[in-house]
Design a binder for these strands. Structure first.
Lengths: 127, 127
DNA sequence: GTATAGCCTAGAGTGCGCTCTAAAGCAAGT
DNA sequence: ACTTGCTTTAGAGCGCACTCTAGGCTATAC
């Protein structure tokens, strides 16, 4: 196994788990869920073999998840990606719609957090 | 049933659902979960009877939920509330800890959203 | 009285996103 | 050869927050 420096290649699922911060279970789950096609296998033993492209992709998936995109939408995005260049417009629309929803939700959370802050202020006057 | 104007009183669960935007199912669930003690009953028929205090309380619960506080933490807060004045400090700490977590999460979401925005920017150059 | 509509309870079901288990295969060390 | 520790799969289980169902009671209109 490489892992000295340079471009990561032929990573086992545990190494991939370390690098991405996801568990091996979750990596397999994402693959089954269609978020991660194209995972090559080691020819000798049939183990999954990840490379830098997978790392970058997982990193982006984590951004989508962290901003609340559901698994099925990420699968949809993945499918578009696999269908090639003529889906760029669809992918763009999908991401833009997502961004808009997230921004709306950020505004709502901030608003509701202000109510919490007001309550905190009230409690502080009692101290 | 009153409902003309002035202070809401003796609301049925359906009226309460309308006012709060929660379903009757959810109102019962919140009560069972310990988020909502003290729901009086109509002496004749045993139906739940809500008043303005309940409305305000549900409104605050919605702020906590909207900012991601789990049900069990809201129950904890409810318990403190029921234990009276000497829990003010604990309630304050609970809300402050919550606010801090939410603010942290807002920062993280914003960061990850920037990655999405960068991807959008990239796609737009392809157009 | 009867129909309809709203309320009650206990408990089952749902959807999501993991997370774990069992049984089996492969790899490296002693 | 045996042990240890990784990998594989299919499928079960979990925690959360609802959401709904079944069966029964109550209230009002006709």
């Amino acid at each position: 196994m490489v892992m000295q420096q340079g471009v990561p290649e032929n990573l086992t699922i545990q190494q991939m788990a370390q690098v991405t911060g996801l568990s091996a279970h979750t990596l397999r789950y994402y693959e089954r869920a269609g978020l991660l096609d194209l995972v090559d296998r080691n020819q000798q033993n049939g183990y999954r073999s990840y490379n830098e492209r997978h790392i970058n992709w997982i990193h982006f998936i984590k951004c989508l998840r962290a901003t609340g995109m559901p698994i099925r939408d990420i699968r949809r995005y993945t499918e578009l990606l696999q269908q090639g260049e003529n889906t760029v417009r669809d992918r763009l629309n999908l991401l833009k719609a997502h961004r808009q929803r997230v921004e709306q939700q950020l505004r709502e959370v901030k608003e509701h957090l202000e109510a919490v802050t007001r309550k905190i202020g009230y409690y502080e006057t009692l101290d």
